[in-house]
Design a protein around this nucleic acid. Structure first.
Length: 266
DNA sequence: TTCCAGGCGTATC
DNA sequence: GATACGCATGGA
């Protein structure tokens, strides 16, 4: 971790990190490109993050404490991504994907925000998911807690234009506030039990559960199979995804997702 | 106008 | 367990 405090900002020198590849690759929906970088949120922590050089980043108006306790974990800066790249380099398709999306990092997102985000993602497209989540945060002026969400009035709920997914959000909020689902206990569960627990939420099926486990709980073996990854599987892995990558299949999936979605010509 | 989007619930067999 | 269909919304 190579950083220095520069007035009210933190300057970070970092390998294997690119903002658009990390923040615009379908894992998070609250970051907007601005001149020179991105601005966005991790739950309710706001950040303006600028890319000043290939390996130089400016965390604007950030204390050292927030940088170390919030943003380093969020951007997974304590993980060496050359490990993944070396591991995946034995597979031609994955090597190309890593080469293309060389600066993608798996964000460590808030579990509740991740539950909401990926409930809203189903049968939806990324620009519209972003819009719904932006409106979701406008109701209270911050990302709503499960209790906030239960208290939404009918007009507030309708303002989201989330369609049939609103009732799923509400079911998640209800089951979490009533502790029928305990998000703080998910991490301790074996993978299959964690899947089953999340799928007790109406509107959370196999794919959304994998996304929540991968992005919200860092279960790197979770492998979300959406329409894009199904195309990858049909085209490059007709015999199934290589077993040797099983423990980090979710990381591989993220490189492949960004690759296939933004380089459909290849 | 029709199709599609980081799917899932429900009905039916 | 597998398959077919509807679902809210909005951009292409």
């Amino acid at each position: 971790m190579q950083y220095q405090i520069k007035e009210a900002d933190i300057l970070l020198f970092q390998q294997d990190f690119n903002l658009s590849q990390t923040l615009d690759c379908g894992q998070a929906f609250r970051w907007k490109a601005i001149s020179g970088g991105y601005q966005g949120y991790a739950l309710n922590h706001k950040l303006i993050l600028l890319q000043e050089d290939e390996h130089l980043f400016r965390f604007c108006q950030t204390t050292e404490k927030d940088f170390l306790e919030i943003w380093c974990p969020y951007f997974d800066l304590f993980t060496d991504y050359s490990f993944y790249k070396n591991l995946f380099s034995t597979d031609e398709t994955l090597q190309q994907a890593c080469n293309y999306a060389w600066g993608m990092r798996l964000l460590r997102q808030d579990p509740w925000e991740t539950v909401c985000s990926f409930i809203l993602s189903q049968n939806n497209n990324i620009p519209r998911i972003k819009g719904i989540i932006e409106r979701l945060c406008q109701v209270k002026g911050h990302f709503p807690s499960p209790q906030d969400l239960r208290n939404f009035s009918v007009p507030e709920a309708e303002s989201l234009r989330a369609g049939f997914r609103w009732k799923y959000l509400l079911d998640a909020a209800n089951k979490i506030t009533q502790r029928e689902i305990q998000l703080d206990k998910i991490s301790a569960l074996p993978l299959q039990e964690a899947r089953d627990a999340l799928q007790k939420i109406t509107g959370v099926g196999p794919k959304v559960a994998e996304c929540i486990l991968l992005y919200g709980f860092q279960r790197l073996e979770a492998f979300p199979l959406d329409v894009w990854i199904k195309r990858v599987m049909e085209r490059f892995y007709p015999k199934g995804f290589p077993e040797e990558f099983r423990d980090f299949a979710g990381v591989a999936q993220q490189y492949l997702f960004h690759y296939i979605r933004t380089r459909p010509d290849t």
